[in-house]
């Protein structure tokens, strides 16, 4: 009973709304017919240059660039717009900016810290910096000055890490504190670290934490060695932990290079594992894989990662590069 009542109500309502709509349509039609005076086939004397065809929203920026002076100016600065449009939410924000009002001051501001030829690369990496307010950027620079970074260092930090200025002073301060505490650094050392590798400060902290664990617990370096490593090759903390451990595992457990030997040439950890592996196996096949400096026929660890293969063969393999290539095809 209840259901049939609801159904009937619904039906009546539908009919009513349809009837109303058709009525209003008829009225509109009458009005239009009254206004219409011109035949569409007549030639028009008016200026029609403002009328453009329907232009739907585009998926890339090249559709807009010919009509947008701002985008053209960005292109003249060598900014790679094709990379910016890969992230639609950023492209949308950039499109809403006007060059003279919103972007000019930012670019003039950045010009003091980034070289003119690198400014395109800088904004390509971090286009959202154009959406930040200048005051914020100035505050973040003042923070660096207050922490006794020299002008040269600040320039290096900003130009090498485009994302630095996006971080609020609070976050940067927290992160600097984190690094200082975690690796037991004094003021001078943290400044050295930040200038050497500014990206590490804004890097994913979870990643830094895992790599610290890998280096300390899994690889077994002690605190002093870790401090030496972070000050000399901070890139170690930005590598993938799995590949880092694989490299160390091969060096330490297969080639049997001790920790102190790795500490004298820490860059060996930055070399991809397959390169070290193939050179080591080649030296082994020649009977030259002897990395201890106190014994005869010593080959330095640097041989495993430095220089081209030709140099390696000439200096340490004492053979022609073809022999090395032939060997690689037996692996």
């Amino acid at each position: 009973m209840n259901l049939s009542y609801t159904l009937r109500r619904y039906f009546i309502f539908n009919i009513k709304s349809k009837f109303n709509r058709s009525l209003s349509d008829a009225q509109n039609f009458l009005e239009v017919k009254g206004k219409q005076q011109e035949n569409p086939l007549d030639s028009i004397r008016k200026d029609m240059s403002e009328i453009t065809p329907y232009f739907p929203e585009s998926f890339n920026l090249s559709a807009y660039i010919n009509s947008s002076q701002s985008l053209q100016n960005l292109l003249h600065l060598n900014i790679n717009l094709s990379k910016i449009e890969k992230q639609p939410h950023i492209a949308e924000k950039i499109l809403k900016l006007d060059f003279n009002n919103d972007m000019k001051d930012h670019i003039l501001f950045l010009k003091d810290y980034v070289d003119m030829e690198n400014i395109g690369l800088f904004i390509t990496k971090n286009p959202l910096i154009l959406c930040q307010s200048i005051e914020d950027l100035q505050v973040r620079l003042n923070y660096l000055e207050s922490k006794h970074f020299s002008a040269d260092q600040i320039k290096q930090i900003i130009s090498r890490n485009p994302f630095w200025l996006m971080f609020s002073t609070l976050r940067i301060d927290k992160r600097l504190g984190y690094f200082q505490q975690k690796f037991n650094l004094v003021g001078k050392e943290i400044r050295q670290l930040v200038t050497r590798q500014p990206k590490i400060i804004t890097y994913n902290l979870h990643h830094i934490n895992t790599n610290s664990f890998v280096i300390k617990e899994e690889m077994g370096f002690n605190d002093d060695e870790i401090k030496f490593l972070i000050l000399n090759i901070p890139k170690l903390w930005m590598l993938h932990q799995k590949s880092l451990l694989e490299r160390f595992n091969y060096l330490h457990n297969v080639i049997k290079i001790q920790h102190d030997a790795i500490m004298t040439h820490p860059k060996v950890l930055l070399c991809r594992n397959f390169r070290i592996k193939q050179r080591h196996l080649f030296l082994k096949s020649l009977g030259r894989a002897q990395y201890e400096s106190i014994k005869e026929n010593y080959v330095p660890i640097t041989a495993l990662y430095e220089g081209t293969d030709v140099e390696f063969c000439r200096n340490y393999g004492k053979c022609h590069i073809d022999n090395f290539n032939m060997f690689l095809k037996t692996l």
């Binding site: 008016k46 029609m48 920026l61 660039i65 010919n66 292109l75 060598n78 900014i79 790679n80």
Partner: peptide, 30 residues
């Protein structure tokens, strides 16, 4: 290059050959 026809439609219009920015590898990608 891009052909651009500009000016009011009720007067003689101007035909220009302008560089096409949309074709730049920095804009349309590699």
């Amino acid at each position: 290059k891009r052909v651009e026809i500009v000016g009011p439609t009720n007067a003689p219009m101007e035909v220009k050959l302008v560089p096409n920015y949309a074709d730049d590898p920095l804009v349309c990608g590699p």
